[in-house]
Design a protein around this nucleic acid. Structure first.
Lengths: 121, 121
DNA sequence: GCCAATAGTATCAATTTGTATACTATTGAC
DNA sequence: GTCAATAGTATACAAATTGATACTATTGGC
């Protein structure tokens, strides 16, 4: 009771945490952001980096991130078409969060549990 | 291309980010965790702090967090019943992430957009 | 003309997630 | 006997998410 995080009790978006999670909490958004930390990526490039997501879902998450001003979508009028996604300045401010998410996952999520063979200590 | 985040490409859980988001990315999980940073809370106490969530969803998110070992559920055999939720040691390790989420939300999410009246600069 | 690649969109069905409402049990207050 | 409080559960329903597949347009290869 000493800390007093003072969350306004009568707002529809109760917490700043809720607001942030609304933006990056989507099933694939954090992962997209994570891959874009590494630099600009094309649509199919992202798709290949994320084996579990469908084209449709990837498109939708990308559009939502764009609508929230976190990523930039650059369309090149070429054939075959080329679309490049990159982080905006606002998206870049999420870097410490995404990296913290990655670090935590690496030390606490048993995501290597799918047969680590012998290469993981 | 220089950074090489080396995400294993052929695992079902592609990224540590994905794994972390699986645990705290649920619609209300981050918010629950955020309120528990402040100390032990009873069920209805949490419910009052989160106006947008239904009893059922709160119960479910709480059970999932418990199953993931992030929170502890202590039932007191009293009438009326009392159930207290608190962070486990593992849950405590999320503190920097939750706080980062809160800070980011405070500076980037316009969640005060619902009529700031005159009290917000 | 047919197939491939690009970056998607369209459609259908199935599953998951979320909402709304009512209900449980127990005890005390009224 | 009825209402309130506690911490939920049950049921019904709506919305979001997913998977599978087909389709768009354009150009080059064969």
């Amino acid at each position: 009771m000493a800390t007093t995080f003072n969350c306004p009790p009568n707002r529809s978006l109760g917490c700043p945490v809720e607001g942030t999670l609304d933006m990056i909490g989507g099933k694939w958004k954090g992962v997209v952001l994570f891959h874009l930390l590494d630099g600009t990526k094309r649509f199919n490039e992202l798709h290949r980096l994320m084996p579990g997501v469908t084209q449709r879902m990837l498109t939708r998450q990308l559009r939502e991130l764009e609508a929230d001003g976190l990523i930039h979508r650059e369309v090149y009028a070429e054939v075959p078409p080329r679309v490049e996604y990159s982080l905006t300045a606002k998206g870049e401010t999420l870097r410490p969060i995404i990296l913290a998410l990655k670090d935590w996952g690496e030390s606490h999520v048993p995501y290597y549990a799918i047969k680590p063979e012998t290469d993981v200590a």
